[in-house]
Design a protein around this nucleic acid. Structure first.
Lengths: 226, 226
DNA sequence: ATCGCTAATATGTCTGCACATAATCGACCC
DNA sequence: GGGTCGATTATGTGCAGACATATTAGCGAT
C-alpha cells in the first residue's frame, strides 16, 4: 500500500535530484495519483505537508511548483524556563525582585497596543539553575485582562499564566543586548556583558495580556531543527 | 456546512473557556463528529492540526487530551540575508574577506561530524545594508560534498547554496556573544559589543555540507509569530 | 500479586466520490 | 491593442466506509 509518507519521500527525492528543478510546475494531483496508484487524497496529503514545510508552493488552478527560494521554516519549541532547566537535570530556582503597579514605558505600551497613560503591573524576577543566575525576567501585565491578582512570590508569572490562561497568541522577537547595571548585578556579570534577549508579547484574542523580556546569561543557546 | 476550521475554532474555544481543562480527555472523534454533524475525517483534520500546534496530545486507543504544558511552537522563517535586507527596501552589499582551505577548529569539525584532521574551505564575508555593515559571516564548507568549487567573490555562499543544493536538513542555534577584535573591526563596533549569533549546520541526507556562524550587529531582531 | 495473552477501542490512514473555490486562459467585443 | 467576462482546471475540502495499528483494560493462568 502506498502511503502519503511514501509519496512525500518520492517527491522530496525528485526535487533533490532535480527531476523537478526549482520553479518548475510539477504534475497535478490526479496525474501523480495515477502514477503512484493511490487516491488523490493521499497525494494531496503529501503535497500539502511539503507546502507547509516550504518546499512547494501551491495555488488553485495554477498548480504546484517547486519553491524557488526554499525559505526553511524552523519550528522552535518555546518552553517554560522552569521546564527547560529541570529538563537538563538541574535544580530550578526562582526569586521575585520587585512587583508593583506603574505606568509602562512607551515601548511596552505600544507593543501591547495600550495607552501609555494607563497603569500596568510590573514584575521583575530571576530564574536560577543549580543556584546560578541564568535568566532575568522583566514583565508587564495587563491587570484588566486577568481574572485574579496572583502573587508571584513563589511561582513565576509565566508558570501562573500557562496554567490559567491557555491558548494565547503572540509574537516573539530575539536579539542581543548589553547587560545594564541592574541586570549585571542580578546575573553576577559585569555591565555590558552580551545577553540573549527574548521579548514576548501575548494576547488572548485581541486583548493584550503581557509583555515580557527574558534576558539570558552568556552561554545560553536556543536550538532548533530545520 | 461545518468545515474543519469551524471544528478547530470550537475546540479552541472549549479549551480556552475551560470546558475542557488542561489534562482532560476530550470526547472521541466519532462523538464530536456526531455532535457537530460532520464526518469523522473533518474532526480528525481539526484535532490533528491542533495536536501539531501543541494544544492537544493524541495517542491511539488512549484518546485526545488537552496538553498540560502547552509548549507553543513558533515557526520562524529563516531567510537569506540578502532577501531580508532587500525586503526592508535597503540596498544589499556583500564583500568577501577571506577564502581558503584550512583544517577546521574542533568545534566546527564536531558540529559537522567530520574528523578535525581533514581540510575544509573557510570563507569569511560581510553583508551590508545601505552601506552599513550588518552581518559578519564565518563559514566552513565540506568540499567533498559540493559538485563545483564556486567563487564567492561576488555572491555569498548562502545564495549559491540555496540555488544549487536544495532541500537540506539542519540545525540552528541562536545565542549572544561579545564581538571579538576582528568582528568589531569588520562591523565598525568596539570589541565586546553584543552580537546576535546564528549558527547553522546543514546536511544533505547524512552528508555534512556547511557550518556557518552569522554574527549580527546590535539592533538586529529575529521576529516570529506564535 | 504478577505475568502474559486477548479483546476492545481510539486514532491513523486510504479510497472513491462529490462539490466548492480561485485563478488562469482565451474568446469576444470595442 | 486592450479590456471584459465566462469556461476551464487544479487545488481545497467534504463525506461515508473500510481497514490498519497502537495501546490499554481486563481476564486468566501461574
Amino acid at each position: 500500500m502506498i502511503g502519503w509518507e511514501d509519496v512525500r519521500a518520492e517527491v522530496i527525492r525528485r526535487v533533490r535530484d532535480r527531476d523537478w528543478p526549482p520553479g518548475a510546475t510539477i504534475p497535478a494531483e490526479t496525474a501523480l495519483a495515477a502514477e503512484f496508484g493511490c487516491a488523490r487524497a493521499t497525494v494531496n496529503r503529501a503535497l500539502r505537508d511539503l507546502a507547509e514545510a516550504g518546499l512547494l508552493e501551491r495555488r488553485r488552478r495554477a498548480g504546484t511548483r517547486v519553491a524557488l527560494n526554499p525559505v526553511r521554516r524552523a519550528t522552535l519549541a518555546v518552553p517554560l524556563t522552569r521546564a527547560e532547566i529541570e529538563g537538563r537535570g538541574q535544580r530550578y530556582g526562582y526569586a521575585l525582585i520587585s512587583d508593583g503597579i506603574e505606568p509602562p514605558p512607551l515601548r511596552v505600551a505600544s507593543a501591547l497596543g495600550l495607552p501609555a497613560s494607563g497603569a500596568l503591573r510590573h514584575v521583575v524576577a530571576m530564574h536560577f539553575a543549580d543556584g546560578v543566575a541564568l535568566v532575568h525576567e522583566d514583565r508587564w501585565l495587563n491587570p484588566a485582562a486577568l481574572e485574579a491578582e496572583p502573587s508571584f512570590e513563589r511561582i513565576s508569572a509565566n508558570e501562573w499564566l500557562v496554567a490559567h490562561v491557555p491558548f494565547t497568541t503572540g509574537e516573539i522577537a530575539f536579539s542581543a543586548a548589553a547587560a545594564d547595571a541592574a541586570q549585571a548585578a542580578a546575573l553576577g556579570l559585569s555591565p555590558g556583558a552580551p545577553l540573549f534577549v527574548a521579548e514576548r508579547t501575548t494576547w488572548i484574542g485581541a486583548v493584550p495580556i503581557t509583555f515580557v523580556r527574558l534576558s539570558h546569561a552568556p552561554g545560553y543557546r536556543l536550538c532548533t531543527r530545520l
